[in-house]
């Protein structure tokens, strides 16, 4: 009910922005063609705005589309997306005055892969999935099953530090405070850290063996905006386009280093991966390293200088002999 009111407000605001010529584009979500999906709606037509939705499946980080559109843009942003927008502004990829942020306070998105695991069935057989407070309710063949959010939300949502965007023009709905499940969002990383270094390396080797080098992780990532990616360089050729695990892993490591200080833990890389490589267990560790060493969190403070353009006199000295 609250959701539908909020959705209607979004539709009204977006329509008004386009009609009054305040923006040239609206980027939001509309219903997807498959069960429990949404899809980005990128439109200049006020008539299309009636298709905008807000629900528990608005997964994409839409800020990814900002640098490729010309003119002023109205964009629907969850907390993590808003951080990415701030980060893009800091990197001069986007100008603040060119975006109208339609902020959606977000209590976390439902991870379909987790739900499928929990019930042991494909999403195709599920009748309905809904969210009620700290429960996720799955209806299967008429019967309802309840799961806690720590079981059914995306890991990065459980660890979310900014459910309500700080930087916005229009706020849709009441602000939401961070959930208290960060430990659940950190579980996979903790398990990895308990393993021996050799076992960890073997783990990543095995995971990256099935990488098909589709670059969905890179292309879904708003922080990865290079015009020309290092993997495409031929002089020097840093790595071959042949998807051997060694180069796949090297690609991932480099990508994580490149987006350090820009990664907002939106989880898009992992979600985009068609072969289930647990990429967030890489990006989140880099996120934590950056937070730990340099007290820096991407897109949280719009006055902060970008991580790699700045330094403190005294930091990380213990790592250097």
């Amino acid at each position: 009910m609250i959701n539908s009111a909020r959705q209607q407000r979004l539709i009204d605001e977006a329509k008004a922005l386009l009609k009054q010529g305040k923006v040239r584009w609206i980027i939001g979500f509309e219903a997807g063609s498959l069960k429990f999906t949404t899809t980005p709606l990128i439109t200049a037509d006020a008539g299309d705005t009636s298709r905008l939705v807000i629900n528990s499946f608005i997964v994409n980080n839409l800020s990814n589309f900002l640098p490729e559109l010309e003119g002023r843009i109205g964009i629907v942003a969850k907390g993590c997306d808003s951080r990415s927008i701030v980060s893009l502004i800091q990197d001069s990829k986007v100008r603040r005055e060119d975006v109208v942020i339609l902020a959606v306070p977000c209590s976390g998105l439902i991870d379909l892969a987790k739900v499928e695991q929990l019930i042991g069935k494909d999403r195709d057989e599920i009748d309905a999935i809904s969210r009620k407070d700290d429960k996720v309710i799955v209806t299967l063949a008429g019967a309802k099953r309840e799961f806690s959010i720590s079981e059914a939300l995306y890991d990065n949502c459980l660890a979310c530090e900014l459910p309500t965007p700080q930087e916005y023009d229009i706020l849709l709905g009441e602000p939401i405070l961070p959930s208290n499940e960060p430990a659940a969002g950190q579980k996979k990383l903790d398990e990895l850290k308990k393993m021996s270094p050799e076992a960890r390396w073997q783990f990543w080797k095995k995971e990256l063996e099935r990488c098909i080098r589709c670059y969905a992780c890179r292309n879904a990532c708003p922080a990865c905006y290079c015009q020309r990616c290092f993997v495409e360089e031929t002089e020097p050729q840093w790595l071959l386009p042949i998807p051997h695990w060694q180069d796949n892993l090297m690609f991932q490591i480099t990508m994580d280093i490149h987006v350090a200080g820009r990664c907002t833990d939106c989880g898009e890389c992992q979600r985009a991966c068609p072969v289930n490589i647990p990429l967030r267990s890489l990006t989140k560790e880099m996120y934590d390293i950056v937070a730990d060493l340099f007290h820096f969190k991407a897109g949280m403070d719009k006055e902060a200088l970008p991580l790699m353009t700045h330094y403190e006199q005294e930091e990380a000295e213990d790592l250097i002999g």
């Binding site: 990128i42 589709c214 969905a216």
Partner: peptide, 13 residues
């Protein structure tokens, strides 16, 4: 094409 992110999933798979 507006929402396509130019990854290789739909072709490689």
């Amino acid at each position: 094409a507006a929402k396509c992110i130019s990854c290789g999933i739909c072709t490689l798979l």
